[in-house]
Design a protein around this nucleic acid. Sequence first.
DNA 1: TCTGGGGTCCTAGGACCC
DNA 2: TCTGGGGTCCTAGGACCC
Length: 418
Amino acid sequence: MIGLCDCNNFFVSCERVFDPSLNGKPVLVLSGNDGCVIARSNETKALGIKMGTPVFKIKDIVEKYDIKLFSTNFPLYGDMSKRVMNTLKAYTPAIEVYSIDESFLDFSQFPLESLKGNGEKIAKIVRRNTGIPVSIGIAPSKTLAKIASKLCKQYPALKGACLLYKDKDIEKVLSRFPIEDVWGIGRRYSKMLKEYHVFTALDFFHCSPDWVEKRMSIVGLRTWKELHGISCISFEHTLPDKQTICVSRSFSRDVEDVDEIKAAVSKFTTTIAMKLRKQNSCAGQITIYIMTNRFREDKPQMFQSFPIKLEVPTNSTLELVKIAVSTIDKIYRKGYGYKKAGVIVSDLHSSNNIQLSLFDKLDRNKHSKLMRTLDGINARRGRDTVILASSDKKLSIKSEHISNRFTTSWDEIIDVKV
DNA sequence: TCTGGGGTCCTAGGACCC
DNA sequence: TCTGGGGTCCTAGGACCC
């Protein structure tokens, strides 16, 4: 049996931990530049506000219901996530961190009759230790566990834990579960399935496996089997290294100045190099892209992306930034307003086995020593204590409703009034 | 005026090998 | 009229996830 612990309305819950007056009130958390809705409280869900809605389109509702808005605060959410995961680790034999707000829990050694009670206990402890409410679904497969966790949110009487394993129960639940809400069935497939009158998870359950495989490949077949209680997506005890790493941002306005774009790309690449070193990888390829605002149909559009193969894979900030910034000169065109830029590294290798080149002039030992020192200082003194001069320029990104980094910055720690 | 960011996996087709 | 058989690797595109 496998558990899935999902944090309820996670980003909203993080904000509420540090401002309990938000409990019971409608709250939204917004994407970068305060653009779209990326998290909703139950109250705002009830108002019919959809995930991904641009905020300017719902200005009237926000005002009418006095909805509290928050800019995204990833340092806070990331740290709160760690706290939740650490608590889960302490009360289960193993966890697989699946996303910032979800973990699978290894319940394979627990007797069946103890599962419901254990789930409730764990949900209660997480709430007590971190302030974050969670829903724990327990079932024979990951897909069913996801469904079970959603049931917890519908039925508070379950006290945060739902065990789903009897055939009779599964069929009853699936018959009321919309096909588009099943893990693994996205927008495209649910549209296709509905054309064949498959509307609920149970309709899909009763499809023939051959039919499913023919139309949805073995990925769809896997979902079908998982709904039948056959576990096909195994529990991963160790996280594999990333195969690609990407850092990109939209700007709050259209940027024409090439130096501003270079500074942004320099910043993104600095972050990427840091992430590479963190997982002990070197990149064999780096791609830089810049694009105009696709929503401005009245303006000329431009999307340029330029991949560069590296002769020797690297994770040196100096080397990668130099390449990235010089690439901007190749792809930048005057007269366009750029709205977004990004950097992607791929073809990643372990730093321990790097194929060197006969013609390489770079002193790689020197670089890696310097990077170790830089990482050390920035770990102790804060992320941007030592940066490259080329990235020393403020990015134009809007976040008007941002809360404090209560748990990761001494300057922003919570005030307690006595 | 204002529209997010970061990932994975699978398949098909083309280029190439012997 | 007729044109082999068996592979690998790479990339682009499409699907999905949070």
